[in-house]
Amino acid sequence: MADVTVLSEEEQWRLLVENFCLAAIFQGRLAYCLMSIHAVNPSIMNYCFGTDLYPYLWANMVYGIAVMIYCRPCLRPIAPFNRMVFGLLGSLMFNHSSMICFNWLSHIIPDNIYFLTFMGFISGRIMMVHLLAFLYHVDTRTNVPGVTVVRDSTFEAMYSR
Rank of each mutant, 00 (worst) to 15 (best):
Phe20His: 08
Val144Tyr: 01
Leu75Gly: 05
Met93Asp: 14
Phe102Lys: 02
Asn46Thr: 10
Ile100Ala: 12
Phe49Ile: 03
Gln27Gly: 11
Cys33Tyr: 06
His96Lys: 05
Asn103Ala: 14
Ile122Phe: 09
Asn46Ile: 12
His130Gly: 09
Trp104Ser: 13
Gly120Val: 00
Ala157Glu: 15
Phe155Val: 03
Ala157Trp: 14
Ile44Pro: 08
Phe20Glu: 10
Phe102Val: 02
Val85Trp: 04
Cys21Arg: 08
Ile69Lys: 06
Leu16Tyr: 08
Arg161Ser: 15
Ile78Glu: 13
Asp52Val: 00
Asp139Pro: 12
Phe26Arg: 04
Asn19His: 14
Met45Glu: 13
Gln12Arg: 08
Leu7Trp: 00
Trp104His: 15
Val17Pro: 01
Phe118Met: 14
Asp3Arg: 05
Cys71His: 03
Ala66Lys: 06
Arg151Gln: 13
Ile109Trp: 07
Ser91Lys: 12
Tyr114Val: 04
Thr5Asp: 03
Asn41Val: 09
Phe155Pro: 05
Pro42Ala: 06
Arg14Pro: 02
Cys71Asp: 11
Gly146Asp: 09
Trp58Ala: 10
Phe86Lys: 08
Glu156His: 05
Phe155Tyr: 11
Met84Leu: 12
Val85Met: 08
Ser8Ile: 00
Pro145His: 02
Pro73Trp: 06
Tyr32Met: 02
Met99Lys: 11
Leu131Arg: 04
Glu10Ser: 00
Arg29Leu: 11
Ala39Ser: 10
Glu156Ser: 09
Leu88Lys: 04
Phe81His: 13
Ile108Val: 15
Met1Ile: 13
Asp111Ile: 02
Val40His: 01
Phe86Met: 13
Phe49Pro: 06
Thr117Ser: 14
Leu34Thr: 01
Gln27Leu: 14
Phe94Trp: 11
Val17Cys: 02
Gly87Arg: 01
Thr140Asn: 06
Tyr56Val: 03
Ser98Thr: 03
Leu131Lys: 07
Asn95Tyr: 06
Glu9Leu: 03
Asp111Lys: 05
